[in-house]
């Protein structure tokens, strides 16, 4: 897929939960599920653009769901419809959805759910269960229900769904493949569970990035095959391949 760096007009930018926003940008963009764009809603400052995974895509627009974490995402959250932002991408490898078949578990923590809507929409002829963990309240899960067989929610305080960690409520042995995205501790746990049960596990890594295209080596992660670039060789890796330090 040809990578581009272009300006696009915001058509939606709304808060969907505390600190969580959804933004849509007009235009015909390309992306594989699990890929991301480097987003820039400012000119000089902050210096770097922000990597944000693709939430959804159609012929008219591309959408992202993001968490406000620092000054970049805060600026982005304050942009209005009609404002222009810059997008560079698509970046990274994404999920190879054609090879994902059978009974699938999608296990996410917090904003790690963001790349999974477009992913499950693209997986054909499979049975998909979603296990989504949140701090207090869920988001996007209603949209996900349209493309999944079951959606199980956990929250840290039990205010919605099951109380506790999302990794506690699913059993990898029941699935042919597990797709996981979330905090490192949680991904490590899920990955280990899959390793023990012999279930294929794909994890989507998050890392601070500078270039986003594989040139600077700033987002390296440790793997069984040495250092790899999260932005270019990832963000999707086999769980057994990555050495997660959590």
């Amino acid at each position: 897929m040809q990578q581009v760096y272009v300006e696009g007009k915001i058509v939606i930018n709304k808060q969907i939960e505390k600190n969580i926003y959804m933004i849509s940008v007009e235009g015909k963009f390309e992306a594989k599920p699990g890929q991301f764009y480097m987003i820039r809603a400012w000119d000089k400052e902050p210096f770097l653009s922000r990597p944000i995974s693709v939430y959804d895509l159609d012929d008219e627009k591309i959408s992202f769901v993001y968490e406000v974490r620092g000054k970049g995402t805060e600026i982005l959250s304050k942009k209005n419809c009609g404002d222009a932002i810059k997008l560079m991408g698509p970046c990274g490898n994404g999920f190879d959805v054609d090879k994902i078949k059978g009974k699938i578990a999608v296990v996410t923590g917090g904003i790690g759910i963001a790349p999974m809507l477009y992913t499950i929409k693209s997986i054909k002829d499979s049975k998909i269960d979603i296990f989504a963990g949140f701090r207090e309240k869920s988001y996007i899960t209603n949209e996900m229900k349209k493309y999944a067989d079951n959606v199980y929610i956990t929250t840290d305080n039990g205010s919605e769904g099951y109380k506790g960690n999302v990794a506690e409520i699913f059993n990898p042995i029941e699935y042919n493949a597990v797709l996981c995205c979330g905090p490192t501790v949680m991904m490590k746990k899920v990955s280990n569970m899959c390793l023990n049960s012999g279930t294929a596990c794909l994890i989507s890594m998050e890392e601070k990035m500078a270039c986003g295209v594989g040139a600077c080596l700033g987002c390296a992660c440790n793997t069984s095959d040495g250092k790899k670039r999260v932005c270019k060789d990832g963000p999707v890796f086999w769980g057994r391949e990555v050495i997660l330090s959590a």
């Binding site: 400052e45 210096f47 990035m209 500078a210 080596l217 987002c219």
Partner: peptide, 11 residues
């Protein structure tokens, strides 16, 4: 490996 600063970054 990288850390953003005002108008720049450290690597």
């Amino acid at each position: 490996r990288i850390f953003e600063t005002p108008s720049g970054l450290m690597n």
